[in-house]
Simulated scan of single mutants.
Amino acid sequence: MVIINNNSEDAEFDEILERDFTSVFRHGYITVEGVTMPKRFEDLKNNIRNWNVREDDVWICSFPKTGTTWTQEMVWMIMNNLDVVGGQANLGHRSPFLEVSALFDYREFKKENKDFQPPPFIDDSLEFVKHQSLKGPLCLKTHLPWALLPKEIQDNTKSPKIIYVTRNPKDTCISYFNHSRLMEGYRGNFEDYCRLFLAGKLPFAPFWNHVLPFWERRNHPNILFLKYEEMVKDLPAIIRKVADFLEKPLSDDQVEVLSSHLSFESMKKNPAVNYEMVVSLNRKYNLIHCEGSFMRSGKVGDYKAKMSPEVICKFDEWTKEHTEGLDLFD
């Protein structure tokens, strides 16, 4: 087991991770710059740190399960003039996930299962992104916090457009729990998962260390900060804001077409964005033992049906501790 810290509570969290959140494609955890990451990230971090950043790429940055896929599809469509035909290709090809190979390390499994063929955008994501970059500007996804982004971004040597999307942490936790069970093999209970979330012991956590550095930079000209709740409340307004930020303004008719395309029901039924391909692959090879779908409800306030009052109180106190005086979440 990979021990992240030495005090007794951290050791308990490490035991939960080892017992409930390791698998044939997840072999342990490390901390890098205070961030919890799958052990495989150790092999990728220097290449990412030294990444040759292109200023005409657009980076979609987020903590997991905060509206990333929704934002990716919106941005790709705007960047590509609402190319519905081109948008039938899998989103993982069109808007690659930079560090996904750290989440799904299939190397050993492939040696024993010669017919197993994971999608190329997962199998070796860094090489895939390099290959896609040859074709022109990318809509690039990452869940890396500011501290783990390429040094050219951190030191302002390069200033690509960055769109950061976030969501209230209670709904994020619910969605991340379901995602972790369905996509990443988490086998534990929801109560332990909430404890891991609050303690910053899940991949890409701590949550506030992820959100706040982008919030502090929200007025930089190359950064657009979005909230999931605002997207739900008035999607056409957010589409216009994103289009203006990308310097690709849309007509009213185009906004209406894209709003329909991005509706939750449309996204849930769209095989190019709903990740059913990856879910089916994991089930075929018995890597995941969980029912469900990648896109579940998309509702604001969904946590109320799942979290106990005691856990809600802990989340509210934790949120107040980190955001007092900030106009971030209600």
Rank of each mutant, 00 (worst) to 15 (best):
I4Y: 14
N5R: 15
N7G: 05
E9P: 00
L17F: 10
R19F: 05
T22F: 11
S23W: 09
F25Q: 04
Y29N: 08
I30G: 06
T31F: 15
V32R: 13
V32D: 14
G34S: 08
P38H: 12
L44Y: 10
N47I: 09
I48E: 02
R54Y: 14
S62F: 12
K65D: 02
T71H: 05
V75L: 05
L91Q: 13
R94V: 02
S95Y: 01
E99H: 07
E99R: 05
V100D: 11
S101V: 02
L103F: 03
L103Q: 06
Y106E: 05
F116M: 04
Q117Y: 15
P119M: 14
D123W: 03
C139Q: 04
H143W: 14
P145D: 01
L149K: 01
E152S: 13
T157C: 08
G185F: 10
Y186P: 05
E191W: 14
Y193R: 02
L196T: 05
L196G: 04
G200F: 09
P203W: 13
F207L: 06
H210T: 01
F214T: 03
H220V: 08
L226E: 08
K227G: 00
E229W: 07
M231D: 01
I238S: 01
A243P: 00
V255I: 14
L262Y: 00
S263H: 07
F264I: 06
K268Q: 04
P271M: 05
P271R: 04
Y275S: 06
S280E: 15
L281R: 04
N282R: 14
I288S: 00
G292N: 05
S293T: 15
K299L: 11
Y303G: 06
M307E: 09
E310M: 12
V311R: 03
I312C: 13
K314G: 11
E317R: 14
W318G: 08
L326A: 06
